[in-house]
Nucleic acid binder design. Structure first.
Lengths: 200, 200, 200, 200
DNA sequence: AATGAATGAGTTTTCATTCAT
DNA sequence: GATGAATGAAAACTCATTCAT
């Protein structure tokens, strides 16, 4: 148990060093030596714990997804009503943790890697579907027809990704709070318009 | 001119080989030998024309942006009214050329590279600002207050990127026509709502 | 064609460098850098031509077997009668080329490697069976019953290997000519005794 | 003594683990971790008892030689007459212990290592000379002239090695009993022929 | 005594780049 | 202009060995 804990803590530290290194050098130029330096250990040690560069990167990507899921889970559990749940989903994607430049860089790297790894792309699919169904459920709970809820969910998901991508590319320019505000307005707009259409 | 034309044609061919190779192997694993094989020439020749791997990648990224700008310019010039101009902007981003898997992969690689290259990130900024101002102008022409037009432009740009990113990650799932339809509806919604609010 | 010849000559040179290096450092400690130094080229070049250390060693082992087979073939083609053929087989195994210390060391390395490689052990089996059948045929041609010829062949083959192994281990002590002499006597003895027994 | 006994037992266990590991992975690829795993201990412990990989291998080789010498000594002490002594020498080399695949692999590794280690090659020389003189004495006791006895001893030793080598290379094919039978016949043949020649 | 964490030197391998032809 | 041979620097990875616990 203490050993196990030790090993897990080490892996975690290496994963965080990987995230920091990806931000500093980019995945393309990233070397194990970079990560080792960042973690303050010898390069061999990372191999000892993670096996290979590939496995380190996989662990890193899984870590990103896991963190996001934890935040989402936590915020959803505290949301009192459907509308709050929709807002919780939005906020989870723009947490200060999620918007840390290192994390943002790592996610982009994740997307690049996912294109070459079935297991990563699979994880991404699962996450994507879950987000879509969470959003759809949130909209559907507002007396919105399912088809309409699906489209609203789809555009909301796309907006989340779009704002996030802008944050990646135009670092510093994007204001998380602004993004969240626009997104919440979009959600409200979808709901209002649906109910308006419904009445008419 | 004939020599120049020859050289330009060569460079162009190498850039296209680079795009294809990025799709096949990913930027992370991409080698000059891959590109050379794809182009059917020796690796040395690419150096002869492009100078270095870095320069080849830069040329490739500039090519992507240039192509998109050409399409946009062409479609905008044919759009008869402000609304058509907004639709032209949307359509330009989901051309069958833009949605070619190779091109999509290359754009993602572009984004990754841009984070490490001032010149690339500068190009991206310029393009982003131009897109934003084009969209804003389109909305403003619909009797929308400037502030409102800016927000509509911003969310529209984010939706474009968001749908595009989904296309990258969930290859095959995203239907270009569907994306275009949802985007056009979004644009219409923004305009309608603005006029409704304006009256009230 | 000239390219092909060049490449073949290079490979050949690297194989010979490998043989020399095995003698100098032993297979256990052998590095690609050793072989490269011996060949007077960079380590990368050997990879360029041979692909990997493993493939270099395989090529080396195949070379050894091929050389021996060539010598054997040549000498057998010149042997006028069954007895000469038996002697040719013996002599082929103790050629000055075969007894070069480098070659001897490489053969021992071959034996060690063969235990871990199906393809090498397969080559060795084939060679071993061919030797056995050649010897058996040689003895059978002396009016020896087949069963007897087989045993004579077997002990002759074992003697060849035994003398060769002594040469490996007690380098310098073994005199090739002496080995050949004893072996020829052994062959003669087998034939005589068989005919004696046959008469009795 | 009890501590000494403990330490000795440990070393012995590690030597046996080394023999087993050499068979499983080959000397070329053998690592201390392999041996440690085989012995069910940590790699550090082997260093603690043996000092280094080199010393472990040396101890292993000495062990092989020692075992063979013990068997030989034991069997010779039970042999009642010169002829039985010759047979005892032969049998000692084809004991079921000596023919265990692990032991056979280890001997071949021994031969390879001996080429690079003066102390190992020295041990081998001593053993080889002792075998030769034992065999010579055995033949000489049959009223054979010394020169003749030496040649008979030499060929007998070579046959032993040759059959053993076949066992190494064509694992499973060689039948120990058959080898012993052929060897005994060879010995008998040498003696008979010498006496026949002597009389004539 | 025993472990396993940690290192650093060394090994294979890869690749952008150069250069003679 | 075009090739591909050749290099050298740097990468991932391995492993014997050390050492704190």
């Amino acid at each position: 148990m203490p050993k196990m804990g030790q090993a897990a803590a080490r892996k975690r530290a290496f994963v965080e060093a990987a995230i920091a290194s990806i931000h500093k050098k980019g995945i393309v130029a990233l070397t194990m030596a970079d990560v080792a330096r960042e973690a303050g250990v010898s390069a061999g040690l990372i191999h000892h714990y993670l096996g290979s560069k590939d496995q380190l990167l996989h662990a890193t990507m899984r870590h990103l997804l896991h963190e996001l899921q934890q935040i989402l889970k936590h915020r959803l559990s505290r949301a009192k009503n459907p509308h709050k749940r929709l807002e919780a989903i939005i906020e989870s994607n723009f947490t200060s943790e999620q918007m840390r430049p290192e994390v943002v860089s790592a996610w982009l790297a994740f997307y690049v890697q996912a294109q070459r790894s079935d297991s990563l792309s699979h994880l991404l699919h699962i996450y994507s579907r879950r987000l879509q169904s969470n959003l759809t459920a949130g909209f559907a709970a507002h007396d919105m027809p399912l088809a309409r809820a699906r489209i609203a969910a789809e555009s909301t998901a796309a907006l989340i990704d779009g704002f996030w991508l802008k944050a990646v590319l135009v670092e510093g320019v994007m204001n998380h709070k602004h993004a969240v505000k626009v997104l919440k307005r979009h959600v409200a707009q979808q709901i209002e318009e649906a109910s308006a259409t419904g009445i008419a």
